[in-house]
């Protein structure tokens, strides 16, 4: 929709070109959320497209995803064959409520910064142990795991004017086996729960990442595949008020599904 309060667009070629940060500034990445609601407290958009960050850089160490990487680019990424978890990229792209048409514009960073519980890029990057590089205004770059970046429903640690530069997925996580479960109230709708389990083929480490059901991603690590009782116990440790209540699912149902699918994931990765 038209953002009628916007009076200025800045299109910097370098971040340093953005002088003093002001209230009413907002970074514009894909714009697919920004333009979906009135932004009455914003008067200036700073376009990140002109920074021209390379979207995807794969090295032996892992995958660096620029914050401005379009979802469609992630969907189309051809991963090395030993990255067993690479199909998760596409699974999570397909976990958007939004149409594939939105993927042509929406960015990976934008989805994480929105910090909605159902954000599938949060599911993906937290399950694959992603670490974000943030560029604070006037400070040194800092690194924050995705798991710690999102602190609640629509909440994160980003400071005013601070930029997300990239998300790095380490190769050791990308080389893991994985199991994926998702549930939506309407067909292909918004995730009511999205749970990912990973298993390290070498060290047998098992990581369970619960997203969408809970207000923020929750992650549990086990040295080996846990027992059903252990999985039950960690899920039971999540209080009901940590589950999201909205029109895409009730907290009780989300909790119920979290038990059910976590156990399925445990069994799948035990096989």
């Amino acid at each position: 929709m038209d953002l009628n309060t916007i009076t200025e667009i800045q299109r910097p070629s370098r971040v340093e070109d953005v002088k003093e940060w002001q209230n009413g500034y907002a970074y514009l990445a894909g714009g697919t959320w920004l333009f979906s609601e009135p932004q009455v407290n914003t008067h200036t958009l700073i376009d990140l497209e002109t920074l021209q960050w390379p979207s995807l850089t794969a090295t032996a160490d892992g995958l660096e995803i620029a914050a401005t990487c379009r979802v469609i680019e992630l969907e189309n990424f051809a991963a090395p064959p030993d990255w067993l978890a690479a199909p998760l990229l596409s699974e999570c792209c397909h976990s958007f409520l939004a149409s594939f048409k939105i993927w042509n514009e929406a960015t990976v960073g934008g989805n994480i910064i929105m910090s909605l519980p159902a954000g599938p890029m949060i599911s993906l990057t937290s399950a694959l142990e992603g670490v974000m590089t943030l560029w604070p205004r006037g400070g040194e770059p800092r690194q924050v795991p995705v798991l710690d970046f999102v602190t609640g429903n629509h909440q994160n640690v980003l400071q005013p004017g601070e930029l997300v530069r990239s998300i790095f997925l380490p190769a050791h996580a990308l080389k893991k086996k994985y199991a994926f479960r998702r549930f939506t109230l309407t067909h292909l709708g918004r995730s009511e729960t999205l749970i990912i389990g990973t298993l390290c083929p070498e060290h047998r480490e098992f990581v369970l990442t619960i997203t969408a059901s809970t207000l923020r991603p929750m992650q549990y690590r086990f040295d080996s595949v846990p027992s059903a009782a252990e999985v039950r116990s960690v899920v039971e440790g999540i209080p009901l008020d940590h589950y999201l209540s909205d029109t895409h699912g009730s907290p009780e149902h989300r909790q119920h599904l979290t038990y059910y699918f976590s156990e399925q994931i445990r069994q799948e990765l035990s096989a």
């Binding site: 929709m1 714009g31 697919t32 333009f35 979906s36 958009l45 048409k101 939105i102 042509n104 514009e105």
Partner: peptide, 27 residues
């Protein structure tokens, strides 16, 4: 809807379908 959900405003940008209500016109 003017919010990217219904697709009634779909146009092609360089041949690719987009929801034009979400595309900043200057782009």
């Amino acid at each position: 809807c003017d919010a990217g959900d219904c697709g009634a405003c779909t146009v092609w940008l360089d041949g690719k379908p987009v929801h034009s209500c979400l595309v900043p016109a200057f782009r």
